[in-house]
């Protein structure tokens, strides 16, 4: 087993290999063996021979975010991911790719490299070690929805990818944005209680976006990947915010702007009415 602690989805590390997309100038800043698991392939986005793999990454993004209306244009991949930061993910060699997945990606017949099944994208902020994450793509929901490979469960792939990526990028403090209704909050909450900087965000396409963050250390990363030996003190929720309750988000935003300290202490829950509720703790 390549990771020195137990994780959810042990089989993932047997079946998949890690890759990194980074320019030569950025590559030297990365940990190319996060938790001892060496990156199998480095893709330099400034080279012509990267084109096929980068097209496959773009396809992965479309499969993940297309239905939610937030797929990344290729220029965003280049200008907002590959040039300033890096992409880390897990892939399967084309030679052993499942036939249905090969069709889904429309993998060129002569492509003998890797085919990505997950990726995490983050870019640095102006303080060393502080990063902003902006894309977590995992084929796991697509696998389930289309019943692509019934004998192989990709559960845990998203969290595993994000945890390894933050280690690879040497992140010390993380910030990200997500929607109150996003199922990705289950993954983000695995890193521990999430500090909230915004609860309602007019600067974002979807105003019902929250900005969250956490300190990154090995404990948080191991927990995110499913190590049962890491537990957090999670404060009790003060309230629960329904992901459809815009007024509650605005009221919470007003409290944050007035100086309140707010966190999401744990994962969301689903209601009988089919909505998502997110726990919120207001500590000051």
């Amino acid at each position: 087993m390549p990771l020195p602690f137990p994780i959810k989805g042990e089989r993932l590390v047997d079946e998949l290999v890690p890759y990194v997309v980074a320019t030569p100038g950025n590559l030297r800043c990365l940990d190319l063996a996060p938790f001892g698991w060496p990156v199998a392939e480095v893709i330099d986005p400034t080279r012509l021979d990267a084109a096929v793999f980068l097209d496959l990454l773009h396809r992965l993004d479309g499969l993940t975010f297309g239905p939610e209306g937030m797929p990344m244009p290729k220029w965003v991949f280049y200008d907002c991911s590959e040039l300033p930061g890096a992409i880390y993910g897990l892939a399967r060699p084309a030679s052993s790719l499942w036939p249905k997945v090969r069709d889904l990606f429309a993998v060129p017949a002569d492509h003998g490299g890797l085919v990505p099944v997950s990726m995490y994208v983050a870019i640095p902020m102006p303080r060393r070690g502080v990063w902003f994450g902006h894309n977590l793509s995992s084929l796991a929901p697509v696998f389930r929805r289309l019943d692509l490979v019934p004998e192989f469960d990709l559960a845990g792939l998203g969290a595993l990818t994000k945890g390894l990526a933050l280690k690879c990028f040497r992140v010390e403090r993380f910030w990200g944005a997500t929607q109150w209704a996003s199922k990705a909050l289950y993954i983000h909450a695995k890193f521990g209680p999430l500090e909230l900087q915004t609860a309602y965000t007019p600067a974002h396409s979807d105003h019902e976006t929250l900005t969250y963050g956490f300190a990154v250390d090995d404990r948080a990363l191991r927990a995110s990947m499913g190590d049962p030996g890491v537990l957090f003190d999670r404060p009790a929720p003060t309230t629960w915010i329904d992901a459809r309750d815009r007024d509650a988000m605005i009221a919470l935003q007003d409290r944050i702007e007035a100086g309140a300290t707010v966190c999401i202490p744990g994962p969301p829950r689903q209601t009988a009415a089919g909505s998502q509720e997110v726990p919120v703790t207001i500590t000051a």
Binding site: M70, M72, P73, W75, V76, D79, C80, S81, P84, I123, P124, M125, P126, F132, H134, W175, G176, A177, T201, A203, H204, S205, D206, T209, T211
Partner: peptide, 18 residues
């Protein structure tokens, strides 16, 4: 040019990191 910036890109990739 087909390169207008969606607001989420403005937030996540421009005004937060820069």
């Amino acid at each position: 040019f087909g390169m207008d910036m969606p607001s989420w890109v403005f937030y996540d990739c421009a005004v937060m990191p820069g």
